[in-house]
């Protein structure tokens, strides 16, 4: 079976500094993969390479067997490679409902219509209501996003991504900044993601990674240094060194 998502020998350097070296990974349909790594490991660069924000020096990205390396970000999204953002990127003056309706309209090719009312498309409104209900956001669907809790904003990021009907979903630290009391709701939402969807989660929180992913890859200094089940990660000497080294420099929490 061909992988739904494949990165092969992806490399990127900025002015001689190699921030991604020969990264290769493949994901099957429905897979739950986590990518972890200490600060400065090149996770952001990796996300930017995969989503098409920056071009690699060498290597390929394939989606559903198609080489998308040369495509821009919008084309990748349209083909089903969808991401969420580490820091929520939402419109504070719009409601969650409006965010999702806009997303659905785009999928239907109606997002830029002038001779229509935004709130007049009942098909899009119904679909948006369904997605918001799935994530438990019905109650706040018509409040301004600026006025809802951060945990709910994170859920809305996921709702928007789901409304795009992705084949591959890139979750960039989906629980970052959420108060610990609200993380169970995020985890619950992640557990209920469509079974056929391939999900790549980039995350710091090891507890979350352990509960979510069947397989983990570790990125350090731009290279993949580990691949395997979550249970083996902590035992791997190379991973320990990469993490301890970085924590020794940063002098932060364990």
């Amino acid at each position: 079976m061909t992988p739904v998502f494949e990165v092969s020998r992806l490399s990127k350097e900025f002015g001689g500094l190699k921030v991604s070296r020969d990264i290769s990974l493949a994901m099957a349909e429905g897979e739950r993969l986590a990518l972890i790594g200490p600060n400065g490991a090149g996770k952001t660069t990796f996300v930017n390479l995969v989503t098409g924000r920056i071009r690699p020096n060498s290597g390929h990205v394939r989606l559903d067997g198609e080489d998308i390396t040369a495509l821009g970000p919008e084309q990748r999204v349209r083909r089903g490679l969808v991401r969420t953002f580490q820091v929520t990127r939402l419109f504070p003056d719009m409601t969650p409902e409006e965010h999702v309706i806009m997303t659905v309209l785009q999928r239907h090719g109606k997002a830029a219509r002038i001779l229509a009312r935004f709130h007049g498309d009942s098909e899009a409104a119904d679909e948006a209501a369904d997605v918001l209900a799935t994530l438990g956001l019905t109650e706040v669907a018509r409040r301004k996003v600026g006025a809802i809790a951060y945990g709910q904003q994170r859920l809305l990021e996921i709702a928007i991504a789901l409304a795009q009907r992705p084949k591959v979903l890139l979750l960039d630290e989906p629980a970052a900044g959420v108060p610990s009391a609200d993380t169970p709701r995020i985890e619950e939402a992640l557990a209920r993601l469509p079974a056929s969807l391939a999900v790549l989660m980039i995350e710091h929180d090891m507890d979350l990674v352990f509960r979510f992913a069947r397989r983990v890859v570790v990125l350090a200094a731009g290279e993949l240094i580990f691949e395997g089940p979550p249970a083996d990660v902590a035992r791997d000497p190379q991973v320990r060194e990469a993490y301890l080294g970085s924590y020794a420099h940063a002098g932060s929490h364990a």
């Binding site: 919008e74 999204v77 969808v82 990127r89 419109f91 806009m102 997002a111 935004f118």
Partner: peptide, 18 residues
């Protein structure tokens, strides 16, 4: 609505494939 979105955050709109 799309224009308002583009004004506030073009990257978010781009991430919708627009």
């Amino acid at each position: 609505m799309l224009c308002r979105g583009l004004k506030e955050d073009p990257l978010r709109i781009s991430a919708l494939g627009i």
